[in-house]
Design a binder for these strands. Sequence first.
DNA 1: TTCACTGCAAAAGATTTGCACCCTC
DNA 2: GAGGGTGCAAATCTTTTGCAGTGAA
Lengths: 147, 147
Amino acid sequence: MTASHHEMFQDYLARKRLKMTPQRRAILDVFLSVEEHLSSEELYAKVKQVDPSIGQATVYRTLKLLADAGFAWVVDFNDGVTRYEHQVGHAHHDHLICERCRTNIEVVDPEIERLQEDLARRHGFVLTHHRMYLYGLCQDCRGKTAP
Amino acid sequence: MTASHHEMFQDYLARKRLKMTPQRRAILDVFLSVEEHLSSEELYAKVKQVDPSIGQATVYRTLKLLADAGFAWVVDFNDGVTRYEHQVGHAHHDHLICERCRTNIEVVDPEIERLQEDLARRHGFVLTHHRMYLYGLCQDCRGKTAP
DNA sequence: TTCACTGCAAAAGATTTGCACCCTC
DNA sequence: GAGGGTGCAAATCTTTTGCAGTGAA
């Protein structure tokens, strides 16, 4: 399984005339082993446990590469830190957020997904990904008075 | 028209026990006069044309304030710069963003809007607003090689 | 009079880059 | 052997903050 990811990455690198290195292999392995989104900083900390000689700049550079290669998705919490997640075993989802209690429900609507592609295509775009945040009030909070 | 915005802002400030200042007034005016999204940097440049004595930190601070007050919305293009837009006289729209050239097309799809409401209702939510960002490659950039 | 506000400059934090050496392909 | 890759440190870039003076309420 991990072997096939190495192969896929290897292929990607070959296509771009880039090279596979022990560092890139190590960073990919650590990245795929974590089932949550990670900042470059956080990944760097974990990578150092495996190989302390790897530098932070290499982690930044490799994470960008993994994003280009399609192994990593950018997740933006709008707090100044870029986070990445891999979708191996992960499904895409959008967010339904209650403005009062901050409850966050992960949702997916296949029809909306399809219409997003259509909409983009009408404008000549090919989508790589999207983010959708729906804000409102949940059932519980709707009954209560404002805080 | 602008006067009423001053009043609304004034009210907001009073409620929060904050103060109206010439700087805040000037920044609000300039912000509302621009019909596109602006970064703090860009707004600062425009504000300086009106009053060169206003500092950049004040623009950053005021923009945050305007966002809290509901005059400004954060628009996130995922490129490390926070942008703001006002919705005075603006219809709601979503964003179709080219990841290469950063072109931003404002889009609305009534069917998607409707399905969003449906989706929310199925989860017991009533929506107040939403943000949708579609990321991809535009027609022009799709032909070019990576930078 | 009282604090919030401001400009400035320094600080902070995240990410990028220049460089000399290293090592895949 | 050629050219991409790496670690390190310095450099950038955006945004925040400390401070001493200013001014709105």
